[in-house]
Design a protein around this nucleic acid. Structure first.
Lengths: 234, 234
DNA sequence: GAGTGGTCTAGACCACGGA
DNA sequence: CCGTGGTCTAGACCACTCA
């Protein structure tokens, strides 16, 4: 298994500090030559490194060393922005689209809506240190947040909820799984189809136990580490 | 992007019920011929399906349709066994090894041990419906659980803790990330090097806030969906 | 415009699984 | 022992990035 050896050789280079986070690896053809192999085999080694979260790929731009992942606690309502700042990272949020739509299957399912309900759909891309790391889709009940789309949605939704509607999260149901980036999500994150992803789905309830919104997050899998504490009550 | 189309075609077959969970796909060479392409391209499509969690691979045995994932709540102490049974699955646990070792870096780190401490290391493989889905390593403090290795470790550790030492979990710190299976873990799960994995690390504290053990779980990523509820206290 | 990554072809050999 | 999957070779063309 040549590709495992190549992978190990590159890991060694990274761990020895020869390659720093965000730095670009040499061209695939160069690397293939260095390890005296073909591009196919070399790419197998790179894919392995990618799935271990040591490197990542930007579509047609090449391979880069992964920085430290963001520590993310799904049980905190802490903003993405504040979370990033607390960890010494530079956050940025870009609004992709915000509109009122007829609930699709996913939204209807998560928000427990009747057929043909309207929902707000907000799509955003979030950056860490100029790198796009997560594609977030929010579905929001318009009966609870009328005229939500009039606000600046590049800011924190939870801030808007609190400041303009007096509503805060009380309880959060979340689901974490893995998948891969495809199509729109992939493009927005500058990834190629098939890039491994961590998927976080959250359904949020307010202080009265009312289901108010949900979000589906597609993370580049190397950019996130989910960490939390649970206190057992029995 | 031919391989995306091939992937979609196979997904369609699965969704239409032409292929059932645990069923083996046709041989790669057959599939390649069916889609009028080469094995390399076909395998790209299969890898995509794998990373989406729709199919999985058993080393040298072929590709199979993924069953429903197990719903797993890291904030519950519920046994693997009971969790599986509750969800109508057939669990099995196999002891790989159990011994006292000099703490390695990982164990020392998670258990906050002094250098040269002894720890119990227990390795187990867990099955769902005869399929190996997770490789678990436990590190346990021997000062808290003397003679632990005398018990039958193919059973639930938490049961042993409770029944023989009067100790239960009170609080759990956990971390979830993705990586890939390699070496021992891969072999034990009948996987090839590079198979995507979900990694769950847990550090467990007893009813007095004392750190008592930790476990590192390598899941076949298609076999698990992490689901939980968090109640915010502020 | 040169170089790069994305994708694909058409083979090959080997070791292992399963009959 | 046959067929299969695991691995690898040695190319090719195209579209895109970036200098």
């Amino acid at each position: 298994m040549q590709y495992v050896k190549i992978k190990d050789a590159i890991v060694e280079q990274i761990d020895a500090g020869m390659l720093s986070p965000r730095e670009k690896l040499p061209a695939e053809r160069k690397l293939a030559e260095t390890f005296d192999t073909t591009r196919v085999t070399l790419r197998e080694a790179l894919s392995l490194l990618e799935s271990e979260g040591r490197i990542y790929r930007e579509d047609r731009r090449g391979w880069f060393i992964s920085p430290e992942p963001l520590r993310y606690d799904p049980t905190q309502t802490l903003n993405f922005t504040n979370m990033a700042l607390e960890q010494g990272r530079k956050p940025k949020t870009e609004l992709v689209s915000a509109k009122s739509i007829l609930a699709n299957k996913q939204a209807a399912n998560l928000l427990e809506l009747k057929p043909f309900s309207d929902v707000y759909q907000v799509n955003r891309v979030r950056y860490l240190d100029e790198r796009p790391v997560v594609y977030v889709t929010n579905y929001i009940r318009p009966d609870i947040f009328p005229k939500l789309l009039d606000h600046d949605l590049a800011n924190s939704l939870t801030d808007i909820y609190r400041e303009h509607y007096g509503m805060v999260y009380q309880s959060i149901r979340y689901r974490i799984s893995t998948s891969s980036l495809i199509g729109l999500q992939a493009q927005a994150l500058r990834a190629t189809s098939g890039t491994p992803a961590m998927v976080v789905e959250r359904v949020n309830y307010n202080q009265h136990g009312l289901l108010i919104d949900c979000d589906i997050e597609y993370w580049r899998h190397d950019a996130i580490s989910i960490e939390s504490v649970a206190n057992l009550t029995r």
